[in-house]
Amino acid sequence: MMTENKSTAILNASRSDALNPWLKLAIGIALVLIFIFCVGKMSLLIPGAQRMAEVVRDHDLRPAAIFYTDFEASADSSEYVRHSLSYPPKNIRQNFQAINNREDYR
C-alpha cells in the first residue's frame, strides 16, 4: 500500500511536470494574443498613432521592411527623385525665388 501511494505520488508529480511546460506555453500564447489584439488596439489611443495607421494603409507601406527592396514605395520614391534630377524643369536657378516660396521647400 505504502509503495503504491509512493508510486502514485511520483506519477502525479511527473504528470504535473509534464503539464507545466504546456501550461507555460498556453500562457505565453495568450500573452502574445493579448499584446496583438488588446495592447495593439490600445496603442491607437497614442496621439498620432491613428493617423499613422491610416498613412500606412493608404500608401500600402510596410513599416517592418528591413531593406529598401522589401516594399514598393522605396522604388517609386527613388525613381521619382531620379527623374526629377535627370529632367529638372528649365531655369531652376532663375526661378529660385519662386521655388523658395513653394510650400514643400519652405
Binding site: R51, V56, P63, A64, Y68, S78, Y80, V81
Partner: peptide, 19 residues
C-alpha cells in the same frame, strides 16, 4: 527601420516620403 522611414515620411508629406 527602412520601412518605418517611409511611413514617417508619408506621414509628413509626399516629398518627405520621396526624400
Amino acid at each position: 527601420s527602412t520601412g518605418a522611414v517611409a511611413a514617417a515620411g508619408a506621414f509628413y508629406g509626399e516629398k518627405a516620403l520621396y526624400v
